[in-house]
């Protein structure tokens, strides 16, 4: 730091003066010369990655309907629609869960809750159950979006989802199941979790 003395600052100030003078002279030089110029316009727009779950409380999102008094051997189905309005193609959609109320149900990866996700090529046929839940049938083609696994998961890639630009609507059926191996330690527990779906743009390319 010591090399940077008042002398250097003086030189800096002087240089600034010279530059200012040159600019002033350029302003005065209005003598005509042959010139030509041409211009093109170029615009660059970025694409978007935009994914949304359906509105809670509709057949597009039944996850807001809680499952109460579940017993080992029970399963629960809830529909959830993913709306993909991205203008960019996607490299993938991944799902993560995050428990805000946690218990053995989400921490025991063997005997706790299991989750599987299927999709239907057309809208699921929803049947309300007397116990407040729902069951679903597909009149089109079903395919596996997430093979059954423990509820706790981080960035698990979804399979059989359309990744093309404006991929449209992915109609999911989320099925949770409490295995019959869940013993008495699982009585009277609760878990509340967020399911997050993250869409990521296609790989960068030359445009």
């Amino acid at each position: 730091m010591t090399w940077f003395t008042t002398g250097a600052r003086g030189r800096l100030a002087l240089s600034a003066g010279v530059v200012a003078l040159a600019a002033a002279l350029a302003g005065l030089s209005t003598w005509a010369t042959f010139t030509d110029s041409t211009q093109g316009t170029h615009s660059i727009a970025t694409g978007t990655v935009d994914i949304d779950v359906g509105t809670a409380g509709t057949a597009d999102n039944r996850l807001d309907v809680a499952v109460g008094a579940m017993a080992p051997g029970d399963s629960a189905e809830r529909a959830l629609t993913l709306h993909n309005s991205s203008t960019l193609a996607l490299s993938g959609i991944a799902v993560s869960t995050s428990a805000s109320t946690s218990s053995l149900l989400d921490t025991d990866s063997t005997n706790g809750l299991r989750m599987a996700i299927d999709r239907c090529s057309v809208a699921w046929t929803e049947t309300p159950l007397a116990n407040g839940g729902y069951s679903y049938a597909c009149s089109g083609t079903t395919s596996t979006v997430l093979a059954e696994r423990a509820l706790a998961m981080s960035a698990q890639p979804l399979t059989n989802v359309d990744l093309a630009p404006g991929g449209g609507i992915v109609r999911l059926r989320i099925r949770t199941r409490l295995p019959t191996s869940a013993g008495n330690a699982f009585q009277g527990l609760a878990t509340s979790f967020d399911m997050s779906f993250t869409a990521t743009q296609r790989n960068a390319t030359n445009r």
Binding site: D64, A66, V67, S100, S192, D194, Q201
Partner: peptide, 18 residues
């Protein structure tokens, strides 16, 4: 950095008792 977007929904499950 890549363009990403996330969306989420909440779900609650509780077990009964014997």
């Amino acid at each position: 950095a890549q363009f990403t977007d996330s969306t989420s929904a909440n779900h609650s499950i509780s077990t009964g008792t014997v």
